[in-house]
Design a binder for these strands. Structure first.
Lengths: 120, 120
DNA sequence: CTTGTATTCAACTACTTGGTTGAGTACACT
DNA sequence: AGTGTACTCAACCAAGTAGTTGAATACAAG
């Protein structure tokens, strides 16, 4: 499915479905950054990070500026509002089952990237 | 990135990044359904829907039963809790910019699949 | 004007995805 | 047993994705 013609919600979710991109967003939540800064934590080429950035930009989650040879990126979380709203319609399907919720929150927060991404 | 080795959060977001799959989830939020029922609104083969169902199942969003020759699917929204929690960490980045929020919510709700999916 | 730095572009590779069709499996019904 | 119904599997295809490397662009600073 060419993401160019994907609906906005699909594009947002697709953009978020990658740990590197979520990491980039986490970094940007602490302020604007250049590609170099953003690439630093990852063992991949500059160009690869640049591509991830483009995906985020196409999803509207990131806007880019211009400062000399730098193209600083900054967070724009607005598209997440729609994603959040969509998911929240299903909240009642897990909220009455706290065991499952707990399960997911803990395994996910531990095993994954969530806290690492936040680097907090 | 083979989704088999993706972290749970990525798998959840990836599963949600497709309108057909979101439609299936919406349908299942009204109760369990067979593959036939689920396939009915779509102009694609049975097998294609069966595949989407497998993606949802691998993401833990859907569980399957067995009833004679039927394999009824039912919603398990628990994995969405983690996705929702992740997104919510970015809430402050759009909540103070209500214009942008409004923009996204309205264009998305209109242009897309969200309400159609809910068929409400 | 040449060089260095930051970033993107283009071409390529390996793999995934979303769909197809046709055959196979599992069960119910007569 | 034989047929119909519900679904999955396997093989395939076209297109997309995530990464690579090397060349190109844009600017700053000697």
């Amino acid at each position: 499915m060419r993401s160019a013609e994907l609906d906005p919600l699909s594009r947002t979710f697709a953009a978020l479905a990658d740990p590197t991109r979520r990491g980039i967003l986490a970094r940007l939540s602490r302020g604007p950054a250049n590609v170099g800064d953003l690439a630093e934590p990852y063992e991949m080429s500059f160009a690869a990070v640049s591509k991830h950035l483009r995906v985020l930009q196409d999803a509207g989650l990131v806007t880019r500026g211009r400062d000399a040879q730098y193209r600083p990126a900054m967070l724009d979380a607005a598209p997440m509002a729609a994603a959040s709203a969509w998911i929240d319609d299903y909240r009642r399907f897990w909220e009455h089952s706290f065991a499952a919720l707990d399960d997911y929150l803990t395994t996910t927060r531990n095993a994954t990237t969530h806290n690492e991404e936040q680097e907090s």
